[in-house]
């Protein structure tokens, strides 16, 4: 043992072991127990530990589960698309059109050093029926009646999350834009590409890795987001996390909650892999 600790490999393993064991254990153990729970059933106060597929059957046949799962994935997809589309021009601006890169990057990240819960709460106040936006528009005389489509729907969820994830999209795209060899762009121009062509055929394909990274970072946690659908989603904007919370909280059906967590995780993984494969293929195609 002492001999092993003197080698490069031994030292590396020993130093990194506490961190990787901590994360490894806290990923594996809860997951294992979650799997066990998903095969048990809840009988009022007791847990019936007879192994059964009942929870999976319920998750597969209950229209509410299917509906919320599908909606979560669609909303997460919309959030990802909106965030990346809104962030791309900013990343482009910082990479190519300004000298003050550090300042801009700092300006963009500062708002996200504040509590996520509070930012979502603030959007609720902005978008509400008697909220900031409506009252401001009425004070300015632009509208007579408060707009009702702002809060408690999918739109509010997508807007709030597109705001919440902004730097996670801007930074990876900025990095991939920054990495582009500028002489490639000059070559494209010298060879007669118009600006648009140059963007579509040179710049955009070279940033596909950044776009994929940004999309995955945003998509995966968004599917399981709890705070935003609870605060601004209303009944139209509820997502799978809300249902999972109900099972672990008020409904007190942990086995079903465990099953839903596992199903959600599997769906997210599947959707993410599908997306990464499609995006990579598409990126090659454009070139």
């Amino acid at each position: 043992m002492a001999g092993l600790l003197r080698t490069e490999a031994g030292k590396g393993l020993a130093l990194s072991a506490p961190a990787s064991l901590y994360v490894g254990l806290l990923v594996a153990a809860p997951l294992g127990i979650l799997v066990a729970y998903s095969f048990w059933t809840q009988t009022y106060v007791e847990i019936d530990k007879t192994l059964t597929w009942a929870n999976y059957l319920e998750a597969a046949t209950d229209p509410l589960v299917r509906h919320l799962m599908l909606r979560s994935i669609l909303i997460a997809g919309a959030v990802t698309a909106a965030t990346v589309a809104l962030a791309y021009p900013i990343a482009y601006f910082i990479a190519f059109r300004t000298q003050k890169k550090t300042l801009w990057l700092l300006l963009i990240t500062i708002p996200f050093w504040s509590s996520y819960l509070l930012r979502v709460f603030s959007w609720k106040l902005i978008l509400g029926f008697n909220g900031v936006l409506n009252s401001a528009l009425i004070s300015l005389g632009l509208i007579d009646e408060p707009l009702t489509f702002l809060l408690y729907n999918e739109f509010a969820v997508v807007l709030t999350l597109a705001h919440a994830w902004a730097p996670f999209a801007i930074l990876p795209i900025y990095v991939s834009l920054q990495k582009i060899d500028r002489s490639l762009l000059e070559a494209a121009t010298d060879l007669g590409c118009s600006k648009l062509e140059r963007f579509v055929r040179v710049t955009l394909p070279l940033t596909v890795p950044g776009i994929i990274a940004a999309s995955l970072i945003i998509f995966i946690p968004t599917v399981g987001d709890y705070v935003t659908p609870s605060l601004v989603g209303g009944s139209q904007g509820k997502m799978i996390a809300n249902l999972i919370q109900v099972q672990f909280g008020p409904a007190n059906n942990w086995p079903l909650g465990a099953t839903l967590s596992l199903v959600a995780m599997a769906s997210v993984g599947f959707a993410a892999i599908l997306f990464a494969v499609l995006a990579t293929a598409l990126g090659r195609r454009i070139r």
């Binding site: 979650l34 970072i217 946690p221 399981g224 709890y226 999972i244 919370q245 995780m265």
Partner: peptide, 11 residues
Amino acid sequence: VIPGIIVASSM
């Protein structure tokens, strides 16, 4: 990259 609700419920 693990959704918060899954970390929370499983823990």
